[in-house]
Design a protein around this nucleic acid. Sequence first.
DNA 1: GCACAAGGCGAGCAATTGCTCATAATTATG
DNA 2: CATAATTATGAGCAATTGCTCGCCTTGTGC
Lengths: 215, 215
Amino acid sequence: MAADGRRLRPRKQPKQARAEITRQRILRAAAHVFTEYGYAAGTTNRIAEAAGISIGSLYQYYPNKDAILAELTAQHLDAGMAAGARVRSGELPESLDAVLRLFVRIVLGNHVEPPEYLRVLAERSPRTPQVMAMVQEHEDANIAYLREVLETHPEVRVADTATAAVLIASTLELVVHHVASRTGPAVDRDRFENELVAMMSRYLRGEAEPPGPTA
Amino acid sequence: MAADGRRLRPRKQPKQARAEITRQRILRAAAHVFTEYGYAAGTTNRIAEAAGISIGSLYQYYPNKDAILAELTAQHLDAGMAAGARVRSGELPESLDAVLRLFVRIVLGNHVEPPEYLRVLAERSPRTPQVMAMVQEHEDANIAYLREVLETHPEVRVADTATAAVLIASTLELVVHHVASRTGPAVDRDRFENELVAMMSRYLRGEAEPPGPTA
DNA sequence: GCACAAGGCGAGCAATTGCTCATAATTATG
DNA sequence: CATAATTATGAGCAATTGCTCGCCTTGTGC
């Protein structure tokens, strides 16, 4: 699993134990370096230095710099998909609010890493077809699952569950990501979470249209 | 107005008419080049070539590459603030739905430029204090205005208008930006807009809590 | 303990790129 | 027309950076 891009695959398949160790060292170091310096200034030489290996060794495992980022991206996406799968296979709370709150927490769980690191992944990550495909797959799976939940849950009253699923998925991901990225606690996280849940919940239970059309 | 950063200011204040023309040519060319090649590959030589001037002339108006992007960013932010100011000074529709829909349209109006270009501005833009300050100012103004609207409008029932304003502002900006960035019409824009408006509207008119707390 | 494979090393190449500077062309001023 | 100010030119420098390649070290199998 994870990254298997044609042009991004390591040169050598590790045969000895220390090779695998070196791979992990490179990845860890790259994450640190990218977080601290950003992608452009996070040079391969710096990564090698941080990993405590030589630049030559680095290029025995990754054909180019993009390949390293691609693998880090794949790792992160894998973690996200795993978290999603865990929820999907488990039991859901009864009340809609509790369900939505659970989803918020899940997305928050994908943001434990420092914002600088996530920004590099999201913004600098090579727009390879493979990576894009993974993102798409992740999104689609979430939306499909969300739609199923919406259609099943008794409290949900929206008619167009397809559009609603897309809207809820977007809102969840984007808004949570946004507040999670804020370093300083400019807003009260708990209060914000409550309101976010309330917004989605009221929408989904909805149909509470106001008095008259024009009067 | 616009960019006036200390280290980003042009060397020369234009005294002749052709100087101002050259400035504009550079900016236009930079926007095109950044859109087509991205920031890293959008070299200053390429910009000069696209502008039909020499590289030397470019550096008579902008001390470095970042300064060009900074000015483009400032231009875009200025346009956004102008649009916001226009709405703030005008009359608002009566119904909450219409108001929210207007806001959605406004944000959409800030996305007429190609997504690739906006991505460069948002992601590659130098995180200068000046630029960050402008963004913050823009955000704060919007949130403050939104809060005022929420507190004034009779249909709105949420108690914590401060948090609500932040939530609505975030949702508006992020979700609209997200769907606007999608090149292909993967989702029905109109339908999506309706649901987005509905979500915000039901939240704000809200208080429609379900039956009992635990039973 | 020997031979071969796997892994590690790092000086430095090739290419890119932001940017300078000496000079030339153009325009304003008297 | 002369002089000065302004603007334009572009070859090329200095610095960076991704990456190669020849050589060395360590591990493995017999």
